[in-house]
Write a protein that binds this DNA or RNA. Structure first.
Lengths: 341, 341
DNA sequence: TGAGTTTTTGAAAGCGCTTTGAAAGCCAGT
DNA sequence: ACTGGCTTTCAAAGCGCTTTCAAAAACTCA
């Protein structure tokens, strides 16, 4: 049933029916009730495409997820972030469109999105350090919020991010306090902005403690269990192996733990591990007692907040960009202990 | 720039321009080239909403993901499945809409989706054993493909599924061959259809070998690391603890492994583990050498195939429903060995 | 009762596209 | 020059909604 049919059925004009259903004040209360009842009875829902053509608003938000041919992995945090965002969007009546876009096709893709006009705004995922998408989107005048930041971009834009620098700085300081000097960092892909910031936090903490960084102790790559495992193995084979590991995600930490076991080292006694924990639904850091000492910040919560920011921008397009920096909690688990002598 | 402007700019009618761009044969080749060039030069892309209003096709497919209030987790396989599907949809010019829907609001949600008409088809996730959504969707005449099956549904429908029964039957048989008799199953939530089938496969294999199932050896729940850990701990404390574990996912297997370590048991020697492995991008079963013996089937591949099936249904709505059953590979890793005497 | 207000309803235009049905342009054949 | 048959183009209607502008209906008050 469409509006015209419903209007005929009610012996009213489409105008009145439309107004009644959209809460306009100039329709008599009795009429409104009659219309609403009929709409319910006939299971009428306005056609979304027609509605957005008429109003110019799509009530849809796009998530654009970069898909690199070389790194064919869709980062697991997307799932939780999108879930959080979807909760907000759902509550506000917005739909969520997902698009994967291949490396290099980004500019074209965003232009097309804008021209096709089927989203009111965009969430940008996985920013690189020098990320050209941000300027492009500013130019396109399409509201957007970035999950993360792009170090080299100077124009203002809206973002939601976790304080990667601070989290990794604190984690490193904590290890130093425990007496560790040979501290390894098993990081994400280094061209990703978050990884860059984490490394900076790590290096800063080392420097303030007067510890010279050792490049054999630093590894970057796709954040898989295998990445953690193989790099930890390599480092443990060094003449002076690290006594502590900082890892970029729980999955990587699991890989490091496996390496320790293979080398018959006891986690928290022989070697310490601190990881960042995105608090993903299906991969918690243990139950009540955390397995790993960790810096924790919920990505799902970030998704909720990011979505709210975007909805706000869509509603008030002239506002200046907003930023939101989340601080990670630091949780003590069983994976850290004093440095062995 | 819209069609009207482009047409004026070219001194042609909208009709001709539209036809030229959509590859209709009745437009002179010279004109078509001229139009195409102008479209490119002016960065013209037809408005999606208008187009779908005019054609009646939305070029959009919906993924509907159940979100239970009790089990607030979005299963990690969604991420990989959706990624696979998105690859197919992308290639065919389809957009992908995501909606999370709360338990109990499903019927309403699907009806609304249909009425709003902003998708041409749907992928249904996470079917339960008795899943009312399938009949509803059949009734709504909205093309759909289910990822998984629903045991108690008799009306025909399209699905793509992994052979859960067979995979778990084989895995159990394999353990039996190795001499194990006390075999535990750490399963997913038992009202989920896949978990039900897995349990059936497990029980069938036990029965054919004349082994009486022990209910203390069977656990169901959300597939987290903690679920694997805590249930394994409980079972290892039994007077007659299992000598082998069958787990529903890699994450659960990691939990079981942690339990073994806590009990100072060596995996593959004292206790064996076989897991199902969805071959998720970020959580591989080790590198070249698998950690766990596993039944493996790529969820991402399932996503691609499921998407193709749905596109097919959209293109040929009168076709009878199609089914696609994937068989899991069985991969030997280091987590299994002969039963200890 | 009727002029002036206010409330309530409706006709029609418009959002940007596709598509139908008609017309114009072109060519060969008589 | 004219007809018939192609090829190519166009005007206009329609997709299902919102919204503007105008008209009708219902009050208010002298």
């Amino acid at each position: 049933m469409n509006l015209k049919e419903l209007a005929e059925h009610l012996n009213l004009s489409q105008t009145t029916v439309s107004r009644a259903l959209n809460g306009y004040p100039e329709v008599k209360e009795a009429t409104r009730l009659r219309v609403e009842a009929a709409a319910r009875a006939n299971n009428y829902t306005p056609n979304g495409r027609a509605k957005s053509l008429a109003t110019g608003r799509t009530m849809t938000v796009g998530h654009v997820i970069p898909l690199s041919k070389k790194h064919e992995m869709v980062n697991p945090v997307f799932g939780d972030f999108v879930t959080g965002a979807a909760e907000s969007f759902l509550a506000s009546g917005y739909d969520l469109m997902l698009s994967l876009v291949e490396d290099g096709k980004e500019e074209e893709h965003y232009r097309t999105i804008k021209a096709r006009g089927n989203v009111d705004g965009i969430i940008v995922h996985g920013p690189r350090m020098h990320d050209s998408r941000i300027e492009l989107l500013n130019e396109l005048e399409l509201p957007f919020v970035v999950h993360g930041r792009a170090t080299d971009v100077t124009t203002p834009y809206s973002w939601i991010d976790m304080n990667n620098f601070r989290a990794f700085c604190r984690a490193t300081e904590f290890l130093i306090t425990l007496g560790h000097k040979r501290i390894a960092l098993i990081n994400g892909l280094e061209f990703m902005d978050f990884a860059h910031r984490r490394k900076l936090g790590y290096l800063t903490a080392l420097e303030s403690a007067g510890i010279k960084p050792n490049h054999d102790y630093i590894a970057g790559g796709e954040m898989t269990e295998e990445h953690g495992y193989s790099n930890a193995m390599k480092m443990l084979d060094l003449p002076e192996p690290p006594t502590a590991f900082l890892t970029s995600s729980l999955v990587v930490a699991l890989g490091v733990r496996r390496a320790l076991q293979d080398r018959n080292l006891v986690m928290g006694r022989d070697v310490s591990i601190i990881t960042h924990d995105d608090d993903l639904g299906y991969l918690r850091n243990g139950g009540d007692v955390p397995i790993f000492t960790a810096t924790r910040s919920s990505v799902r919560e970030a998704g909720r907040l990011g979505a709210d920011m975007l909805l706000d921008m869509i509603a008030n397009p002239s506002d200046t960009p907003k930023q939101h920096l989340l601080e990670a909690d630091m949780i003590l688990g069983g994976s850290t202990g004093p440095a062995p002598i």
